[in-house]
């Protein structure tokens, strides 16, 4: 009988059952921290790195996005949205093997497809909780990190959201779902790189490497979003009616 305490949870993490051992090169990007946690923390810029101007810019942009997301949010919908965002939070903690290492999912494309503008408040809460629980990111970088994740989600919703309805053709669904998963991560990577670059020119090589290192994650996210959307289309098409995004 498996008990639900933290020790047994640790033992059944998916990455522990794979055969992927780290090579030295990847070590630096997805460095192992202790036994059970492996952080793709380049998605979350930590405290003290960015310049004040970038931090303020990110905070203002994120605040505008959150305001837009909250505008159409009924007080009554909050329990539902909270539970959905908890599900997304847990889903982003899943480790997926990428060749020799494993990476965290970002899933902001998926969040965007289902929630539209409401991705902003949901991702804000997600980043805040990640800062509080795991110390990824932080207080001053909350704005930048939220914007970096949520803005691509909203872009993908507007660019590709039309293709993902219960009635659309299978090929259309596959293409648009793949694009939203792929481009959401790509734009996030670009924004992370851009925020570093705007802080100082010296960050340019690091920023470039971050974008390049995201490439496998982009492909995997694309595939995952396609499979996930097709699954939802079969099982629970009403989730794809973007009821939450439009309301």
């Amino acid at each position: 009988m498996l008990k639900n305490n933290s020790r047994s949870i640790k033992n059944i993490k998916p990455r522990r059952c794979g055969h992927h051992e780290d090579t030295l090169f990847w070590w630096f990007f997805f460095a192992k921290t202790g036994q059970n946690k492996e952080a793709n923390s380049i998605m979350h810029i930590s405290e003290g790195v960015l310049s004040p101007v970038v931090l303020i810019g990110g905070a203002v942009a994120a605040a505008a996005g959150v305001a837009a997301g909250l505008k159409n949010l009924e007080q009554n919908d909050i329990p539902t949205l909270g539970i959905l965002s908890a599900a997304f939070f847990v889903a982003t903690l899943i480790h997926v093997p990428v060749g020799p290492v494993s990476a965290h999912l970002v899933l902001n494309g998926m969040v965007g497809l289902i929630l539209g503008w409401k991705a902003f408040p949901v991702i804000l809460i997600g980043t805040a909780l990640q800062a509080l629980l795991f110390q990824y990111g932080g207080i001053t970088t909350l704005g930048v990190n939220t914007f970096n994740m949520a803005f691509p989600a909203v872009i993908c919703y507007f660019l590709f959201g039309w293709g993902i309805t219960p009635n659309s053709r299978r090929t259309v669904v596959i293409i648009t779902a793949f694009c939203s998963g792929f481009f959401a991560v790509m734009i996030t990577g670009l924004l992370v790189g851009l925020s570093l670059y705007l802080t100082g020119e010296a960050f340019l090589p690091a920023a470039k490497l971050i974008v390049v290192a995201h490439f496998p994650v982009m492909l995997i996210e694309g595939i995952l979003v396609v499979a996930c959307v097709l699954f939802l289309k079969k099982l629970r098409p009403e989730l794809l009616e973007s009821a939450y995004a439009k309301r």
Binding site: P14, H20, L84, A91, V96, P97, L224, L235, R236, L239
Partner: peptide
Amino acid sequence: AKTNLHTYKTFAYMIGMILVRSF
């Protein structure tokens, strides 16, 4: 878990299932 399509599909279905249950 390995680096192949089957793994990614399984994970995607799992995420889908989590979403459905949460919904």
